[in-house]
């Protein structure tokens, strides 16, 4: 079947989608957006967290067909999403915007061989910058889901208590950090 949806502000289409495929598979394997991660595929780790019409969900548990016509924000679109929010442009329905990854690039982003890149100079959202600076990233596999979730927390609650942070992030497993630096990162982003 064909699935049409908006991802990070851009209309996208995927063809020949098997009906049992998840939104996560479509994003990763058909739309060239592998930022959302596949760590458990049963909603127990949060690594695939995306915003679906603004609401954080596990993309592995959304059937691809259920995303038809809906608006998805992934970690790849988080910086744009945060910037638009900061500019007061609203946080939903960003379709048609001229920013974001162009469709052609989004479908198959490439880390070109030979190019050096650490992404220095890349525009980051405040939560992305804070994760980087606070040492909240080790292997980085849980990072995309945590970023989407933490960004949404700060959108709702700009000044969360520690217990609020823990409650909001309790659906995102991290095996490397012991979460302390993740707490630091969210506190840091909130303080800014």
């Amino acid at each position: 079947m064909r699935v049409s949806l908006t991802v990070n502000g851009r209309p996208q289409e995927a063809d020949d989608v098997w009906e049992g495929e998840s939104l996560l598979y479509v994003l990763r394997e058909r739309l060239g957006l592998p930022g959302s991660k596949n760590a458990c595929e049963q909603g127990e780790c949060g690594s695939c967290t995306v915003r679906l019409d603004g609401v954080p969900v596990c993309a592995c548990l959304v059937a691809a067909g259920q995303a038809e016509g809906r608006d998805v924000v992934t970690v790849e679109g988080l910086a744009d999403h945060a910037r638009q929010r900061a500019e007061g442009g609203g946080t939903r329905g960003t379709g048609g915007s001229e920013t974001g990854t162009p469709l052609r690039d989004a479908q198959r982003w490439k880390a070109e061989g030979g190019d050096s890149r650490t992404g220095e100079g890349t525009e980051l959202s405040p939560i992305q910058q804070a994760f980087l600076e606070a040492g909240a990233v080790q292997c980085g596999f849980c990072t995309p889901g945590l970023l989407v979730m933490a960004d949404e927390l700060l959108e709702r609650n700009p000044n969360p208590a520690d217990a609020d942070i823990r409650e909001a992030l309790c659906g995102n497993l991290c095996r490397c950090t012991g979460y302390e630096k993740i707490m630091d990162a969210v506190r840091l982003a909130a303080s800014r």
Binding site: S36, E76, R117, T118, Q128, L132, V137, G140, T143
Partner: peptide, 29 residues
């Protein structure tokens, strides 16, 4: 690919310099 750190991280040993792969990891790339 190669990871080049220049403009943002200058620390030698003993400094808490940031990961050269960190930006790629927080952007999903």
């Amino acid at each position: 690919t190669k990871l080049t750190q220049g403009s943002q991280a200058r620390g030698g040993i003993g400094a808490s310099t940031l990961r050269p792969d960190g930006t790629l990891k927080v952007t999903g790339e």
